[in-house]
Design a protein around this nucleic acid. Structure first.
Lengths: 155, 155
DNA sequence: TGATATAGGACTATTTTAGTCCTGTTTGGC
DNA sequence: GCCAAACAGGACTAAAATAGTCCTATATCA
């Protein structure tokens, strides 16, 4: 259902928590308690976010996690990619010609374009927006156009 | 990774095959052979598409499947929903207040909006577009705007 | 030096997804 | 009427992805 994994969901919640109080370091156990999630899972999630470069960790007493950059410079894509890897609707969304059904598939190219549009959309959603309590405003999306014979002059 | 399930992927391929030759009925075994996919899987997929109302089946000799309506009136969303159920990025994307972490979550509302934007995008992609060999043209998406205090006069 | 925290990885359990198969029903042709 | 072609529906198994837990090591501060 185009669903995010639970971990990604947690990651967004955790990132939002940090974003709302960005100046001090947050420990995994503190974040777990606030979010009402089990500590080991939150710990795991934070490690993935750190590995993805979205948070910076500091070990030891008084340690914890802080954002690596401003909430305005962290996108929904960034969070999804950190937890789930590259965004793509189909197996063949990333690689240029991996799928052995390519010749017979007939839709790969177009799915890739749809996938790109979604990625672009998610790139435009910032952590700052996700974290704010007022709802973000989504534009009405212009309809996707077909390239017809008369106006097709791009690859 | 916001990925479609394999079955959804197959469904798109199969639907596109039918769409390219919409006048006659296509049997599951014929479609399986053309798409180079195992028959039982294609059969299962077609049953789901029939149940979802996207194709109409006819039993018996000379039977098979035809599209229930024009490829222009079938969207990518339709196909995804037929195979995977309602589109939503998070568990709480559909129901209005199911998640027990709602109070502590802080991002649900905004994920729902992102989810809606994706659904709108997918509603705008037709089977006719997916099936055509020339690539569909995606518009540059306008950035998603935040509702700030000065312009927030909606829910 | 001891308490606090994260790092990293191994491991298990759970859930979802994919794929197969069987039995029943409908349809068309001989 | 009978037989073969085709779908309907559901049960079932297998495989893979995800979630969740735990252990040991390392860094930091007081």
């Amino acid at each position: 259902m185009l669903k995010l994994s639970k971990l990604t969901d947690y990651a967004a919640v955790i990132m939002a928590q940090i974003a709302r109080d960005p100046l001090r370091a947050h420990t995994a156990s503190e974040l777990a308690e606030t979010a009402n999630l089990p500590y080991p899972t939150v710990g795991k999630t934070l490690k993935m976010l750190a590995k993805g470069g979205l948070v910076v960790s500091r070990r030891g007493a008084q340690g914890g996690y802080v954002l690596s950059r401003s909430p305005d410079d962290i996108s929904a894509s960034d969070i999804i990619v950190a937890i789930e890897g590259p965004i793509g609707m189909t197996e063949c969304s990333h690689a240029d010609g991996e799928c052995d059904l390519m010749e017979v598939c007939g839709v790969a190219n177009n799915w890739q374009r749809v996938s790109l549009a979604i990625r672009t959309l998610l790139d435009g959603v910032t952590l700052a927006q996700l974290a704010q309590s007022s709802p973000i405003k989504l534009p009405v999306h212009p309809p996707i156009q077909s390239v017809t014979l008369s106006d097709a002059h791009e690859g």
